[in-house]
Design a protein around this nucleic acid. Structure first.
Lengths: 139, 139
DNA sequence: TGTAATCCCTACTAAGTTGATAGGATTAAT
DNA sequence: ATTAATCCTATCAACTTAGTAGGGATTACA
């Protein structure tokens, strides 16, 4: 299941992408428009900022803005930041690999092979999708 | 993340498929071989039986057996029983559809489109994979 | 210089899920 | 009868999720 955090994060990014990159967008504006609890959204945008996807400006007339063009923001990166590993098991994760303690040899593990296929197909989607696709913005 | 329940369930099914279909396989044998807590495994196999994937025989020399040939047991069915919906959000689930309360129009929702793609790709894998593939058994 | 707007940070919490464990009831073979 | 299995219900500790609360720090602008 996709967490609310990820869903809200994606919606917020879409909103920011659509609003043009001339001025920063306020959390309150996003929260109101997308029906997201504001305080919760604050923490999500903070995460995206710390990951380098968003930038922020403090103080009056401050807000959040994209650090790159929407077409340069890949879903692989966004999903990893918000949702964590893309793989369904740590033993097939590219970025968060971990050996299973219940598996003597993972190359013989039937689950392993299946989950590699799932991972590869999911990755294919996330690699081919950018924020521009999500938001319907040209670049 | 794949739950332990699903992982254990898949391993157990693989074990049963590999052991030939002449006699029922005991929970204790699976638990020991696959390093799965026996009582936990009991409840998992019970779930698979209630879903019609496994059959069981009670009493001495009892155990579990497959209700169909491994090549007839699709991952779509197994995964839905063990892990629940394949989709990452209820609003793109084929079998467990539910409207999002925070989405006025899901056809305009950017997350929706992305998750449909993920779902379709994952489904493709699960539809093309059977227990025979997992277990390396011919039929 | 004051004030309002805004992001930033830490801590807390209720509810739900997961991964078990415990104890026994039921059923069948010998 | 005894033994070996599945079946069933209940319970539980640990963890995660989806927030909430309260304020601190920074900036624009009058």
């Amino acid at each position: 299941m996709l967490s609310k955090k990820t869903k809200y994060g994606l919606k917020a990014l879409t909103f920011i992408a659509r609003s043009g990159d001339d001025v920063p967008v306020q959390v309150s504006a996003i929260a109101k428009s997308e029906q997201i609890p504001q305080k919760f959204l604050e923490s999500i945008l903070l995460t995206l900022r710390k990951a380098g996807i968003l930038g922020s400006k403090k103080g009056k007339h401050g807000g959040y803005y994209l650090r790159s063009e929407p077409s340069e923001i890949k879903m692989t990166d966004v999903m990893r930041v918000l949702e964590g590993p893309i793989a369904m098991v740590p033993c097939v994760s590219l970025n968060y690999y971990e050996k299973c303690d219940d598996c003597p040899d993972e190359h013989k593990c039937s689950v392993h092979k299946l989950m590699i296929q799932v991972r590869d197909n999911t990755l294919k989607v996330f690699r081919n999708t950018t924020l521009a696709d999500l938001s319907g913005v040209s670049n």
